[in-house]
Amino acid sequence: MPELDLGSTLEPDDPTVEAALAAGDIEVLGRIPWSSNATFVVRVCRLGQRLTAIYKPERGERPLWDFPAGLWRRERAAKLLDLQLGWTFVPPTVVRHDAPLGVGTVQYFIPSDVNVTAFDLVTQPRWATDLARLAAFDIVANNTDRKAGHCLLGADDRLYAIDHGLCFHTEEKVRTVLWDFAGEPIDAELRSLLGAWSTESIDPEFADLLDGDEVSAMVERAHRLAEAGILPSDPTGRRYPWPLV
C-alpha cells in the first residue's frame, strides 16, 4: 500500500491558508484511531492549492458533563486567542458548516515527529521562551488538557500547540504538563497587552463562539495574570491531564 501524501502546497504562515481551509473542497482520507472523539485527516483543495488538515466534527464528539456539545467552537476560539496575543502556536483553524460530517473545525496539519513531546522540549533551553508563553496561553485559555503530546515540534523547527477543545470554562480547571514554568516572570509587553483587554476590545468573534460568562472569565484571567506578573503554580500538585502524553 503506497504511503499517504500528507504534504501541503502552502506553509502555515501563508496568508491564503485560512481562505483555502474555509472554502476548499474537503476529501476525507481517514480517521485518527487513537483520538477520544472522532477526528479525521482530510485533504482540502482550492484553486490548485492542496492542504492536509484535521477535521473535528461536532457529530463525532463524546458527551461531557462539564462542557457543552460543540467543542469545535473552543478550537476556533483558541486560534483567536493565539492571534490576539500575536503568536503563531495554534495552526490555522477555521469553522466549516458544510464539511462532510457536518459542522466542525478544519485545522492545518502540522508535520512533526510524534516521538518529540513537551517533556523532551522542556529539557532544551532554546524552547524555554516559547514554552513559557504557551504556559501563559493555557492560563488565559483555562486549558484543562495540555498533554505533552499536544506540543508539536514542526518539521519547520517551530513549536505548535493543538487540541484545544477543552478550554475557556468559567470555572478554574487548568490541567497542564507545563508547571515547570511556575514562577517565571511575564515580560512587560505581554503584561501590558493582557492588562488592557476588555470584553469590548478583544476580537468580536469570541462572542460567536463562547457565551458571555466565558468571555468575561477569559478577560478576568488575563487581568489576573498581568497583575501577578509571574506564571502561577499548582499548590495541589495534582493539576495534570491524564494521560500525560
Rank of each mutant, 00 (worst) to 15 (best):
A19R: 09
D120M: 00
G229V: 11
S192M: 15
S192H: 15
L152A: 00
G102C: 08
W127Q: 11
E75V: 15
P68V: 06
L193N: 10
L166T: 04
D145H: 02
D213C: 03
L47D: 11
V177L: 12
W197K: 04
P100T: 00
A132E: 01
F67T: 01
G183W: 14
F168M: 06
L81C: 12
L134C: 05
I26S: 06
L64W: 06
D66C: 12
E189I: 08
K79G: 01
G212W: 11
F67L: 03
L83V: 02
V140I: 05
E27H: 03
F206M: 09
D113S: 14
A132W: 09
W34I: 14
A53P: 13
S233I: 12
W65A: 15
V41Q: 14
D203G: 12
R59W: 10
E11L: 13
R146S: 12
A217S: 13
R59K: 12
E171N: 13
G86Q: 14
R191P: 08
T170A: 05
D120K: 05
S192G: 15
L101A: 07
D13G: 07
G149K: 11
D25K: 10
S201P: 09
L134S: 06
R133Y: 15
L210C: 07
D113G: 10
L210P: 08
T129Y: 09
K79C: 01
V44D: 07
E184D: 06
L10C: 00
P33F: 13
L231F: 12
D113N: 14
V90H: 00
A196H: 06
N142M: 05
R43F: 05
P68H: 06
I54F: 03
L121A: 04
F67Q: 01
V114Y: 11
S198H: 13
P91L: 09
L83S: 03
A228Y: 05
D157L: 12
L101Y: 14
E18C: 02
R50V: 11
W127V: 08
V103E: 02
E61R: 02
L47T: 07
V174W: 04
N142S: 03
Y108P: 12
P92R: 13
